[in-house]
Amino acid sequence: MDLRIFTEPQQGATYDTLLTVAKATEDLGYDAFFRSDHYLRMGSSDGLPGPTDAWVTLAGLARETKRIRLGTLMTAGTFRLPGVLAIQVAQVDQMSGGRVELGLGAGWFEEEHTAYGIPFPKEKFGRLEEQLAIVTGLWETPVGKTFDYDGTYYQLSESPALPKPAQTKVPVLIGGHGATRTPRLAARYADEFNMPFASIEDSERQFGRVRAAAQQTGRRADDIVYSNALVACVGKDDAEVARRAAAIGREVDDLKANGLAGSPAEVADKIGRYAEIGARRIYLQMLDLDDLDHLELISSTVAPQLAQG
């Protein structure tokens, strides 16, 4: 089971804070550092000192880390034109020596679009499908050839399809709860399918839909990596769990029901149950980015139990 660190910087984090967390992620043996792609805080957080851009952040981290994978859950398709996004991701992949992964979603948070003057189109899923076709098509076009695309929302003509990523294939992540269109899109484009903040039962049902959609396209279902993103709140004892829950404004019972909360043994057991339904990777949503001891505790007490299992 891969354990990855997943951050929500729109709630309030500087680049230096994210760099500190990313370096701890690398030093403590985690597989990857991922971040959200939002420009406006959610809930009661004041969001200070303000948002950081996902791909600007990852470009910096690409030069200041050596091993960990870097990516987004999920880049908002509404924020970037697909041709520009293909260039950005390819460049960051080059800067990292081939460690980037692209999570791409339709975008959903209308308020942040209003706050920063970003158009929020009514039809987002159709745009997402075209974006995936364009980004992957640009990367797959042989050097010296051109790429053309004539879609409903985007048109490209005689694109040189440059630059190319360092990796032969940048892993593409698609996720979500949609019962029909999302599995079909994942079957066509995803190297990884992520189920965010979902129960074991709902995850198993959605993984099954993606597997079925993959098989219908003639693709092996196991060619796709299945993963979950879940908020983490782990403590050596009940008091430490309660303290960490209070620090992020959550109730322990809610976190235990809907996330990964409790003692290291409890959390390892629950991760094991996600593994039983096919999850191979867990994104640990860390909401208190100043609590590096939390990362160390999970690395030293939860990860070893998963390795033994």
Rank of each mutant, 00 (worst) to 15 (best):
D2I: 09
R4V: 11
F6Q: 12
E8S: 08
Q11V: 00
G12S: 02
A22P: 00
A24L: 09
L28G: 15
G29T: 11
A32C: 14
F33S: 01
S36M: 05
M42P: 05
G50K: 00
D53M: 07
W55S: 03
A62N: 04
R63S: 01
T72A: 13
T75W: 09
T78Y: 09
F79H: 10
F79W: 01
P82F: 08
V84T: 13
Q88I: 12
G103L: 08
G107T: 10
W108S: 08
F120E: 01
K122Q: 13
E130P: 02
A133H: 07
I134Y: 01
I134F: 07
V135H: 09
T136L: 11
L138R: 09
W139R: 08
W139Y: 14
V143F: 07
T146W: 09
F147C: 01
D148C: 14
Y149I: 07
L156M: 15
L162N: 10
P165Q: 12
A166E: 14
Q167I: 10
T168P: 03
P171L: 03
V172Q: 04
V172I: 15
G176A: 08
A190W: 06
M195V: 07
F197G: 03
F197E: 08
E204H: 10
G208I: 05
A212N: 12
G218L: 13
G218R: 11
R219H: 11
A221H: 05
D237G: 11
D238A: 15
V241E: 01
R243W: 12
I248C: 10
E251F: 11
L255E: 04
A257K: 14
R273G: 09
R273F: 02
A275I: 10
I277E: 02
L284Y: 07
L284K: 08
L284N: 02
D290E: 14
E296Q: 15
L297Y: 08
S300V: 14
A307V: 11
Q308I: 01
G309N: 12
